[in-house]
Design a protein around this nucleic acid. Structure first.
Lengths: 146, 146
DNA sequence: ACAAATGATACAAATATGGTATCATTATAG
DNA sequence: CTATAATGATACCATATTTGTATCATTTGT
């Protein structure tokens, strides 16, 4: 059971890279070569981030992607929900009607409580916070051979 | 993202049914008719529970399954691990080497902390505790039309 | 011996995940 | 104004996981 899937993972990496780099607009080609993410896959991910308003894209020569909301306002839970849908730990139970005739199943209650905790934790993680340990830690040191 | 998959779900239902019912040994046929679980799938699940020592099976006429450890000693986390493997929320990050050159990635740390919390919570949920709200709540009341 | 049960195991369908490929559109440089 | 470098849209495909099915062997009570 993965809390974070590959596309969310790649999205985090891409966002961190864009935030870290000095120039505002970053092309997908640059990210592919730096982050070693399969190109079409990364492009698809970037398009999603653009549609969701997390990134802003510019077409044409010299175009690319830039962060479109203040980095402090992007949280891990947002990316997870964009790529993995709403975080629901107990969907299976409801779908299969484990407790068909009662709403007060204590298993559901307990799992709901866990879910609330997990979401609250994920909501507290800023993508910008990850920058410190995501390759930008040493400020000006070169990291282009990563 | 499901915390509990279908087989774990079915296992919970079956265990609760066996615990709830007055007779010790319960056949898979009975559980199929009462719990509305596809027969071959339930049989497979029961066999796993038998192999793992949670249930004890008796072959032949009048045979079936009975609980083989004290119900208070069966926890939700055990069933999850039996059917879904060890609970690891962050395997993806490691596999893809999100942080290839540093062990002190703060994202990993945070997710590990969440994982520890989730596991501790799941470890505190006894299957026997679920009985109260799983169809056995009213004691002797009939519930066989479920 | 027969029937009722589980044991073992291989197969298959459906879904989710991870990834490709292709063509259209936009924008800039010259 | 055309060539080129970028993204937009979209359909497709491969693999893994989940959710089952099917079949035959084995055991056991009557």
């Amino acid at each position: 059971m993965k809390l974070i899937t590959r596309d969310t993972d790649y999205a985090i990496r891409a966002l961190c890279y864009i935030m870290k780099v000095s120039h505002k607009v970053v092309s997908s080609a640059e990210m592919v070569s730096k982050l070693h993410i399969p190109r079409p896959f990364l492009r698809k991910i970037l398009q999603v981030l653009n549609k969701k308003g997390v990134l802003k894209s510019t077409k044409g020569l010299g175009g690319g992607f830039e962060v479109s909301v203040p980095p402090e306002n992007i949280f891990l839970v947002d990316l997870i929900e964009i790529f993995q849908g709403p975080l629901r730990l107990n969907e299976c139970l409801l779908k299969n009607m484990l407790c068909p005739h009662k709403k007060n199943c204590c298993l559901k209650k307990k799992i709901d409580a866990i879910e609330r905790y997990v979401i609250s934790q994920l909501r507290s993680i800023r993508i910008a916070d990850l920058l410190q340990t995501k390759g930008g830690r040493h400020g000006k040191k070169k990291d282009n051979q990563n």
